[in-house]
Design a protein around this nucleic acid. Structure first.
Lengths: 205, 205, 205, 205
DNA sequence: AATGAATGAGAATTCATTCAT
DNA sequence: GATGAATGAATTCTCATTCAT
């Protein structure tokens, strides 16, 4: 599905100055990506916006894709961290509480860096290597949900925890994503109630 | 958010030869889209792959986006047609039956032209006119679900049909999409049962 | 010795207009190559000097190397033609006459398009695929000389015609090349006498 | 004819460590020159391949050309040394002996570092300072031959020693170069006999 | 209707070289 | 002496689009 693109970071900055350069480049990437979209992004524009030379950019990123990949990877770490942490915090809470807290965590995670999150989620599937990244997230998330389900055999009514985890994680992600980031945004409190309801009725009651 | 894009088809082919040309162009577009991705698609390549001249291509499609839009539009019509038809056929069926039939319709729709469906959903940039196209589909689907809900005030337990339709349509689409097209495909019968369960418990019981 | 470079011509011009474009591009290449040398040649400069767009250039030549390769191939045909013709015309002339005429032909061939000849011969070895071209010439030339030798077993004193042809063709080419094109050019008449002497004494007397 | 190039070595390494650095850089240059060719050589690549920083490279070589010039100069010294030494050793030998020894010396010189020799002769652009370097060699060699000829007015039959030296040195170099380094290499003993014959008949008998 | 030659703005990318540390 | 981050002009090359034939 698309040719292989070079997304591997080119070299690690070792000096502090270099780290700052990489930082400033990624920030400019995020800004332009949010403003103009992926297609209108160009390495020259990014470099100019970051106030560094193109040469410096290419010292660290071999291509436009690599730029976006690095940004996505960073973002993924933050978002997944927030959600997994919430799941971990509620391994032993009663389902009603756990589910509400986790759903709220997901809604919050989508609320952070909305513009960046939106543009990344839209563009990522098109960027070869990044498909893997998004799949990692899904597998990761579904895995966590499954583990959560398997810990409470009596509290849930589900036959196959793997399938249920798969269904639930995709359904929740999509509903929250659309509800928070879509053009027709939904009031977060309502969204939370409804999604919790969706999940609770499917898994528990 | 990008320059103004012309996506309206330029003219309708009237002669049989012209229809064949359009057909061959769209097929080449689909093929290249799958092979190289949207970014590496080019009108020249499409024309070459289709065995026609660029000039001929521009006779029918005013831009690269129009090419992809036409392909997507075509596919949308088939898929949405199948689903809306299923919804229409079950306006008055009992919820259990209606929901199962509709879900089955959605699963079937995703099964048709799997490769094309996957490519379109991954490769279409979610900006410009193409973005609108995609959002239209979502709004359309949610609208149909909402209408369906509003027809049966006593059969469903939902407070706000608009919100419920929104949640449900996104959740179902995502679960089915991932279940049918994802790397870890799920047995269609199991998928059907689980998605029906998800919807039924949320909307009805 | 050096990476493989794309030197194959990209597409054949079919319309008269296209043929003219190719012609004008090659002429500009020759001009710039003679004036600035290979390293200072660039596709943009060539296009500008030819009065066509870069795009047109790339329609026919995939790289800078291809440009030079096409030029070299053309030049080779002319030069080799002139020399082989001279050899053919004197298959049956007495050695003294034949050798003088052939040597004169080679000197004349080097005299045509001196600047182009000089720059091509200097740059060709560096351009991957073109090594073959130059070797072709040598093999070709040595072959013709050998055939010439083998036709007159009694007139020549040579043991192994293949070796003698090899030695003679390289020696003559180098002496004439340096004598005609070198910074310290030699009077053509003197050059002719001396080279004829060199060859005649080696092969015949 | 190209910008002014600085090819003079920047400074002499004085410490042992520095000498080793220079050595390692030149070796990397030779390796890359053989692998990628002159055009694809870059100071950054050379530094990386040599395991030193670009900064260090520029400490000793002020430009890319200087790098190649140093390599060529080194090789030239070895090769020319061997040949001139042989010429000097036979100033007073009878022509048959002298010529045979000198030709043998030239063949041996081409046999040393064949790969490097081939690469240098093919890849060095014949422009700018590097051109001069090459011409120096030719002039030097022709000069030595001329001096040798002028010392023995009675032993040789040549009218103009300068012209004869010019012809002979180019002819011999070309024949030996092709015979030793060409794709169709010739047995060194045969090569020696034939080249000696060529020279002897032209100059002496 | 169809062709395909031509365009040229603009994107990606390299690389010799400098200089602060 | 050595390092390697930074530079940016220059170059290669693509591609959507037009238009004469």
């Amino acid at each position: 599905m698309g040719p292989r693109l070079r997304t591997a970071p080119r070299k690690q900055p070792t000096q502090a100055r270099a780290t700052a350069t990489v930082e400033v480049i990624l920030q400019a990437t995020a800004r332009l990506l949010g403003k103009d979209g992926y297609d209108h992004l160009s390495t020259n524009k990014v470099a100019a916006a970051a106030g560094v030379s193109v040469g410096s950019l290419y010292q660290y990123f071999p291509s436009k894709e690599a730029l976006v990949a690095a940004l996505a990877e960073r973002h993924r770490e933050r978002v997944m961290g927030l959600v997994l942490e919430r799941i971990a915090a509620h391994v032993d809470s009663p389902p009603e509480v756990a589910i509400r807290e986790i759903v709220r965590g997901i809604i919050e995670a989508h609320g952070r860096d909305r513009a960046l999150h939106r543009v990344l989620s839209e563009q990522i599937p098109r960027i070869g290597k990044l498909k893997t990244l998004i799949e990692d997230i899904e597998v990761h998330a579904a895995g966590a949900v499954r583990a959560w389900l398997e810990r409470r055999p009596h509290g849930v009514r589900v036959k196959d925890p793997a399938v249920a985890a798969f269904i639930v994680s995709h359904a929740v992600e999509a509903a929250v994503h659309a509800g928070v980031l879509g053009d027709a945004a939904i009031d977060p409190a309502v969204l939370e109630d409804e999604v919790v309801d969706l999940v609770l009725r499917y898994l528990v009651k």
